[in-house]
């Protein structure tokens, strides 16, 4: 499918907070309660629409364990967006956010959009981290914030899409250098220059960007 832009995302955060489930919910619209531990990094992709434009999201789901940290670092620089996830039922995962954030800020390009996600909002009775705390952390560090549930799919779409919106706005503002692919942004094969409102499916077949 032809796209106007391609954004690269990474998903980071402690192990077990639901990163893989969030990705699966977003790409496949399903929840898998018993999930394999992610070894290294796994890839997923989906198309979304923002402002009438097709945007392809390529997402790398990373392993949260300490032993994979150094591998994860290789992905920061080339990503336009990062979902930093903690588990609202486990305070330790919230406490580790600072470390994650430092790591991300140190190795990423300065424009990377970071979305803070408090996952497992369906487990209200076991909540250990208040929503206000998440909000405060996000405000303090200049992040966007949402609470999600990979189980009920609540806010999952929004989390990925709002991140993309933020990146998109930054592009419009000219903050991102879209010609440098190292920033995790790519312009589509036949980027519509002015008449961007035309449905992009028309040009799709000719451009050789056929099917999937």
């Amino acid at each position: 499918m032809a796209y106007a832009y391609l954004f690269k995302y990474i998903i980071i955060g402690d192990t077990g907070v639901g990163k893989s489930c969030l990705l699966l919910q977003f790409t496949d619209k399903r929840f898998q309660p018993v999930h394999d531990l992610t070894i290294g990094v796994e890839f997923g992709a989906r198309m979304i629409t923002i402002d009438g434009k097709q945007i392809k999201l390529q997402i790398w789901d990373t392993a949260g364990q300490e032993s994979f940290r150094s591998i994860t670092r290789s992905y920061y620089r080339g990503a336009a967006g990062a979902l930093l996830v903690y588990d609202i039922t486990r305070r330790d995962t919230f406490n580790h956010l600072t470390t994650w954030l430092e790591d991300a800020r140190q190795h990423s390009n300065s424009n990377m959009v970071i979305m803070l996600i408090g996952n497992k909002s369906d487990l209200e009775s076991r909540r250990e981290v208040k929503k206000e705390e998440g909000e405060a952390f996000a405000r303090e560090h200049g992040l966007i914030f949402m609470e999600t549930s990979a189980k009920t799919a609540s806010n999952v779409e929004e989390a990925f899409i709002n991140t993309a919106k933020e990146i998109y706005e930054k592009i419009q503002e000219g903050v991102f250098d879209i010609n440098n692919e190292a920033n995790g942004i790519k312009i589509g094969p036949q980027h519509p220059t002015t008449n961007s409102t035309l449905p992009s499916s028309q040009g799709g077949q000719h451009a050789g960007g056929g099917c999937c």
Binding site: M1, E42, A45, K56, G208, G209, C211, C212
Partner: peptide, 17 residues
């Protein structure tokens, strides 16, 4: 498999034709 998925999702199969 992760890279294969990326290859497919990146529409690179089309470029093999």
């Amino acid at each position: 498999s992760s890279n294969q998925n990326f290859f497919k999702e990146g529409s690179y199969i089309q470029r093999m034709k």
